[in-house]
Nucleic acid binder design. Structure first.
Lengths: 182, 182
DNA sequence: ACAAAACATGTAATTTCAAACATGTTTTGT
DNA sequence: ACAAAACATGTTTGAAATTACATGTTTTGT
């Protein structure tokens, strides 16, 4: 489906950027729903240029360091917009290694499974706290159409998702603790 | 990390099965947190036999149809149990194509984005209804240690996750509807 | 008797992705 | 003056995963 293609096109459509910039973006808000290493990004950029969806011009930083600053072509913008408006079927449930462990947990000592759950819960709570800190910057919902709406929306989604993870872990913990007490 | 290896080992540890059976399992409860196509399963089974973690005996169905019924070896069981008890870091957030679209949604007509959201919401609600129907069979939480606890736990988790997806979509919809009304 | 669905097992080609390899420049802090 | 961190761009290797290719048997429903 070449989703990375559209992620890149979407980013460059908002603002001209280098491969390095794109790589950094994948480490920030985008981490909540997409990511790619630079070893995947650079070849994809080359491909997009070959396909006429992106162009670049070289800028010099300092004395000699070359930066390739990418811009979308009209063709690229059209391709992106077409993808963006597509009404797709919901994706299959994402894989989750800890849930796989949970599925097999009856093969484990309850006390061990409890430890695993507590460790997960601790990490999830820290992650949620981080998301909550980021969320503070929004006093209210930014209007749709402002460049902040997307950021807000996916951040709100990440919080809700993390809250659900925590809710589930707490439900499991309760069941295991009830078992141990008996 | 070879998670498929442990998914297969875990399944076969519970009960001897064929590659075809494993394939079917990935289409049922397991779909909520893991899956694999038969083209990935058969080579993995071969590898696990080579590594001495699984054994099989051939059974004949009808006149000539050969079935390979797999069983875990003691070594395989140990390997699985070791993996199962491992306390791991939470995984990076799963990729989500619709959230990527949402992130770029300001490039879209509000009415179009609204349609996309409504479509997602509709599909998510249907999925939740299905999970709820499955959930009915549990009058109460099965005791940990019973073979039903794992099933219950991941099903409960899938419901909670789906509820969160819906909550997020409704939040987005509300914001977009507010925009359109103005 | 026949067809369709389900059972059953594999391989080949391609895509996606992460980790490691590879090389250098520029800025910032001390 | 020096070192570390950040900037900047690539390639190579291999694992994980999907799609398509490939072939056949058995059961079920009509």
């Amino acid at each position: 489906m070449r989703t990375l293609k559209y992620a890149i096109l979407g980013l460059v459509n908002r603002k001209s950027m280098t491969g390095y910039d794109i790589s950094k973006e994948f480490g920030e808000e985008l981490i909540n729903f997409w990511s790619a290493k630079h070893s995947q990004i650079y070849p994809e950029l080359k491909k997009l240029v070959d396909e006429g969806l992106l162009e670049y011009k070289i800028e010099i930083t300092g004395d000699v360091l070359e930066k390739k600053v990418y811009t979308v072509t009209e063709k690229g913008r059209q391709d992106f917009l077409e993808w963006l408006a597509k009404d797709e079927k919901i994706e299959p449930t994402p894989k989750d290694q800890f849930r796989l462990r949970s599925y097999f947990s009856q093969a484990l000592e309850p006390a061990i499974y409890q430890k695993l759950l507590e460790s997960q819960l601790d990490q999830r709570k820290k992650k949620l706290a981080k998301l909550n800190r980021l969320f503070l910057q929004y006093q209210q919902v930014p209007p749709f159409g402002s460049d902040k709406f997307g950021d807000y929306s996916v951040l709100a989604g990440a919080r809700i998702r993390e809250e659900a993870n925590i809710k589930w872990l707490e439900l499991c913990l309760e069941a295991v603790r009830a078992e141990i007490k008996e």
